[in-house]
Amino acid sequence: MADIAALTQLIEPEVEKLGFALVRVKMMSGEDGPVLQVMAERPDTRQLVIEDCATISRALSGMLDEADPIADAYRLEVSSPGIDRPLTRLTDFDDWAGHEARINLIDPVLGKKQFKAVLKGREGEAIYAVIPDEDDLTFDFKNIHSAKLILTDKLIAETAPLSTEGAETITEEEG
């Protein structure tokens, strides 16, 4: 499989040059073979409209064709992170403090590797959260296997002014 860290280093400057922020780069299995998923957002709205996806897709397609960092054929998918977004950057834990997230850890904290918790922010790489009616948690950012916001009425209400167009996805054949 492709080296995600190397792909991220290749893709992030291109996305930023277009005025967007990279959220995640991920290789996934798709029905028609491997898919390189690139999630990005506008820093001001935290969304992407279909035209933004197309702009990023065109720029990345050319750059990836030239660099050829993936040996096998794959499809490029550019998308918005959506409302119930993955939390992939340290700043996400500050930005989404007060919201519920589903968190999967590599090593257990307080005997748990998986939990739903309300994010309380961070200090350095220490992430603070609380499991409602249970425990306060502190865990290291590097211990996170995956984290994602949970769709709640509060999250919907706080993101309601944003357009629903951000859920669009563009897919192109790559090889």
Rank of each mutant, 00 (worst) to 15 (best):
Met1Ala: 15
Asp3Phe: 02
Ile4Thr: 10
Ala6Val: 05
Gln9Gly: 15
Leu10Ser: 09
Ile11His: 01
Glu12Ser: 11
Leu18Thr: 07
Gly19Arg: 07
Phe20Gln: 01
Ala21Gln: 11
Arg24Pro: 09
Lys26Asn: 00
Met27Thr: 08
Asp32Arg: 14
Asp32Asn: 14
Gly33Ser: 06
Val35Ala: 01
Val38Thr: 03
Ala40His: 07
Glu41Gln: 13
Thr45His: 03
Arg46Thr: 10
Gln47Tyr: 02
Gln47Met: 12
Leu48Asn: 03
Leu48Cys: 05
Leu48Met: 15
Val49Asn: 14
Val49His: 10
Ile50Trp: 08
Glu51Cys: 04
Asp52His: 10
Ala54Val: 13
Thr55Gln: 15
Thr55Trp: 05
Ile56Phe: 07
Ser57Phe: 04
Ser57Trp: 04
Ser57Met: 04
Ala59Arg: 10
Ser61Glu: 14
Gly62Gln: 10
Gly62Leu: 09
Gly62Ser: 09
Gly62Pro: 08
Met63Ala: 13
Met63Gln: 12
Met63Thr: 11
Met63Gly: 03
Asp65Trp: 07
Asp68Gln: 12
Asp68Ala: 15
Ile70Gly: 00
Asp72His: 13
Tyr74Val: 01
Glu77His: 02
Glu77Ser: 10
Glu77Asp: 00
Ser79Ile: 01
Ser79Ala: 14
Ser80Trp: 05
Ile83Pro: 06
Ile83Trp: 03
Ile83Phe: 09
Pro86Val: 08
Pro86Asn: 05
Arg89Val: 09
Arg89Gln: 15
Leu90Arg: 12
Asp94Glu: 13
Asp94Asn: 10
Asp94Arg: 07
Ala97Ile: 09
Ala97Asn: 06
His99Asp: 02
Glu100Arg: 12
Ala101Tyr: 03
Ile103Ala: 00
Ile106Gln: 11
Ile106Ser: 05
Ile106Tyr: 10
Asp107Cys: 03
Pro108Met: 06
Val109Lys: 02
Lys112Trp: 07
Lys113Glu: 12
Gln114Glu: 13
Ala117Gly: 04
Val118Pro: 08
Leu119Met: 01
Lys120Pro: 04
Gly121Trp: 06
Glu123Met: 00
Tyr128Arg: 13
Ala129Gly: 00
Ile131Glu: 07
Ile131Ser: 01
Pro132Thr: 06
Thr138Leu: 02
Thr138Glu: 15
Phe139Cys: 07
Asp140Leu: 10
Asp140Tyr: 04
Phe141Glu: 02
Lys142Cys: 03
Ile144Leu: 04
Ser146Cys: 03
Lys148Met: 13
Leu149Arg: 07
Leu149Ala: 06
Leu149His: 07
Ile150Gly: 08
Ile150Pro: 07
Ile150Thr: 14
Leu151Glu: 12
Leu151Gln: 12
Ile156Leu: 15
Ala157Cys: 02
Leu162Val: 14
Glu165Trp: 10
Gly166Glu: 01
Ala167Thr: 13
Thr171Ile: 14
Glu174Phe: 15
Glu174Pro: 09
